[in-house]
Structure formats: structure tokens, C-alpha cells
Design a protein around this nucleic acid. Sequence first.
DNA 1: TAAACATATGAATAATTGTTCATTTGTCAT
DNA 2: ATGACAAATGAACAATTATTCATATGTTTA
Lengths: 119, 119
Amino acid sequence: MTIHDVECCDTYQVHEELVRAVNEKMPGEEELYDLAELFKVFGDSTRIRILYVLFEAELCVCDIAQTLGMTQSAISHQLRILKQSKLVKSRRDGKQVFYSLADDHVRTIIDQGREHTEE
Amino acid sequence: MTIHDVECCDTYQVHEELVRAVNEKMPGEEELYDLAELFKVFGDSTRIRILYVLFEAELCVCDIAQTLGMTQSAISHQLRILKQSKLVKSRRDGKQVFYSLADDHVRTIIDQGREHTEE
DNA sequence: TAAACATATGAATAATTGTTCATTTGTCAT
DNA sequence: ATGACAAATGAACAATTATTCATATGTTTA
């Protein structure tokens, strides 16, 4: 019985090895937070729809809004969140700002999610 | 100019092909909703921590609660959400209920998320 | 410089969500 | 059956969040 053992379910069990393995592989608090934040970004259907649109082409805010039938403001707010998470990048061309996917993780993550939901 | 064209950014542009491609590849409303729901589940650090614990072993509710230093009720509520999303499965053994990962999508999705956040 | 347009942003509101507390349900041992 | 323990659940509260509206910023053209 060591200090790492856990009293649980009214019986003493030797959890030492488990607790060590978990602590070893569990990301630190900050990374866990960042990870949850990232998935939160995918956890909104408006943002997912924006990403699906950007799968097809680089588009300005106005085009995205029109394609999805939402207001410019709503889309702009969501694009800011997507950009902060580095899922999309932007490029200004005159009055317009064009958005595109930042990298291929976006597709992979969404594809994995779809694989899961389709089962 | 067809009915599918979009007036946007004060100029008429031919978006017909784009709109068609988007509509073709964009999942239906229900699947988009399910997809967002799935990612929402990953969008909470408590649930991610639970999944990391289950990466190591099948555990009862009480063990998970002790390992994470949270109440049985809080963990139970979250396990219900994880189970509804088919990310974990459960097995009763006497008074205890043991939880484990439902499939390997969980690891893949979390790994992809980590890859993105670590860049 | 002024007007017009595209985008960004702040405040407000409604809706959603995680945790706690109290209680219930299910199972085992006596 | 009764008491004890593990887990599940409902209600309540605090915190977070998506959209709307109004307005500000940045860019181009006249």
C-alpha cells in the first residue's frame, strides 16, 4: 500500500501502476484546455458548414454568408473564432477579405467525425 | 445568369458551379447536426480527461471519479453523454458499472486534435 | 475629402451546458 | 426483507455561447 493507491468502491485496490500510466500520458492542464477549445470550435454546425464551403474554394465573407443564407455579421463572428483556432486563414484583396482552410487537419478531423457518426 | 447565381459584394459573379459543388458535398442538415453534437462531446476537458483515463484501462465510475478528483455524480453525468455518443460502452458487474472505449475513432480524433494544437 | 462598400466588433439577449445537491434505482450480503 | 453501497437522475444555478443590431474600421472610387 503506497501513497498512490486509491481507496475506491469500499475496497482498497492497487491502482499505483494505473495512476502512473494515466499521469504519464494525460496531457497537461493547459494542453487539455486547448484541446477542448479546439473541439468546441467544431461543435457548432454553422462553423462546420463554413468549413465545408471552404473545402470547395477560397471565398470572401460576403460569398460565405450568401451561400449559407446567413448575415455577414454572424459569419464574420464565426470566422474570427475559426481563425483564432488556426483552422482558417485570411487574405485581404481590396475591400474584400478572402478566407481559406489553414491546413489539412481540418478535413481529417471532420472526416473522422463523419466516419464515427455514420456508423 | 441563372437562378443559382449569387449576387454578392455588389457585383454579379457566376457561382453556379461552386454552389452546386457545395450542395453536393455538404452533409444533410441532420448529419451536420450530429457531427456538431459529436464534436461538442469532445469540447469539454472533463470528458477528454475521462477518455484519456479509459485509454489505459476499463474502470468503474468510482475509480474514474477518484482518479480525476471529481464527484461520482459529475462523472456519471458526463459518462452518460459519452455513452449516448457511442464513444464509450458500459458493462455492469455486480454493484459496479465498468466503462471502456467503444472504438478506435476516439483515439484517432483526439490524436488529430492534439497534432493540430501542438503546432 | 467624401461617399460607398466590405468587414469587424461591442453590447445585449436567448439558449445551452457543467456541476452540485438531493434523491432514486439497482445490486449484494446479512 | 433490510441495510449498505455503486451508479443514475432531476432540478437548480452559474457560466458560456450564437445570433442580432448598431456602429466602427478599412479600402476604393469619384
